[in-house]
Design a protein around this nucleic acid. Structure first.
Length: 263
DNA sequence: CTTTAAGAATGTGTTACCTCA
DNA sequence: ATTGAGGTAACACATTCTTAA
């Protein structure tokens, strides 16, 4: 009974939201893996650690015979433009078969195509761009309209950025939004848990009191039982074992289905 | 100078859709 | 017409790494 019991089970607790009609998946081919936080807030609760909550990652397609470094890429991608880049462009033939799976997708090419600006030494240096205020503002504005990017090249041109940079910004922005929402949800759940704990404590106490009352009354001679102190009903003349009739309705609120009663 | 938080960039896995044999 | 395999795009998520405070 109570929270202690719950903590020993495979709980599923979390907050869910209705899918936002403006979510990226509206135009995407892919259905949402997780519903993006929407403006409307109608949470449902699920608390991990059920089996289903764990995302079991299974490599779906691992073909070692075909993998072997960048053979696939060579068939389909354009060669690097510079000799210096050629060394880095090619996917290394991985000795680890588990690494092969990732090359089954064209994604790798995309990542490399857009990235890895070379510095003066011809070595790939990760340069980090700092967006200026106007760029950020415009991106934010665009994000407010659609959290999924639709006119990427246009926006990129407007911002004087690479399309990939805009794409990355949107991805990270979505992630940040989700993280923030998760933090908010976490706080909400904490408060909810606190309230329920207090309520549980109160009910336990009440139960204890009722039990001791019951004990006191059952030990009393039936003749002395005339008036119930809590409901003020008389108990004489009836069944001596059930001197008082119970109130027809319980006096408890369900704080989950009736949350307004909890505060 | 060091620490730290923010966020840009990268890597990886998954899914839907398309083409072709 | 159907089907399975391979390719591609788009995305989520985790992580790395740079930078400014």
């Amino acid at each position: 009974m109570g929270l202690d019991d719950a903590s020993n089970t495979c709980l599923v607790l979390g907050l869910g939201f209705p899918t936002n009609p403006e979510t990226p998946h509206k135009t995407s081919k892919k259905p949402p893996a997780t519903a993006a936080p929407a403006t409307g807030f109608e949470p449902f609760l699920t608390l991990g650690l059920s089996d289903e909550s764990y995302k079991v990652t299974v490599t779906k397609k691992v073909d070692v015979n075909k993998g072997g470094g960048c053979l696939q890429h060579r068939h389909h991608e354009e060669p690097p433009t510079s000799a210096a880049a050629a060394g880095d462009w090619c996917c290394p033939a991985s000795p680890d078969p588990s690494a092969v799976s990732s090359f089954s997708s064209g994604r790798v090419r995309r990542e490399r195509d857009f990235s890895s600006e070379e510095d003066e030494d011809g070595v790939n240096a990760r340069k980090k761009l700092r967006l200026n205020k106007e760029q950020s503002a415009l991106l934010e504005e665009s994000f407010k309209q659609h959290s999924a990017l639709k006119s990427q090249p246009t926006l990129a041109r407007q911002l004087n950025l690479k399309p990939r940079q805009v794409e990355v910004w949107f991805q990270n922005r979505r992630a940040r939004t989700k993280l923030k929402q998760t933090e908010v949800d976490c706080e909400l759940l904490k408060r909810c848990c606190e309230t329920l704990t207090n309520e549980n404590r109160r009910l336990q106490k009440e139960l204890q009191e009722l039990k001791s009352l019951e004990m006191a009354y059952t030990n009393m001679p039936a003749a002395t039982l005339t008036v119930c102190p809590s409901c003020e009903r008389t108990g004489g003349g009836g069944n001596p074992k059930k001197p008082f009739s119970m109130p027809s309705k319980p006096r408890f609120y369900n704080h989950v289905t009736n949350p307004s009663a909890a505060y």
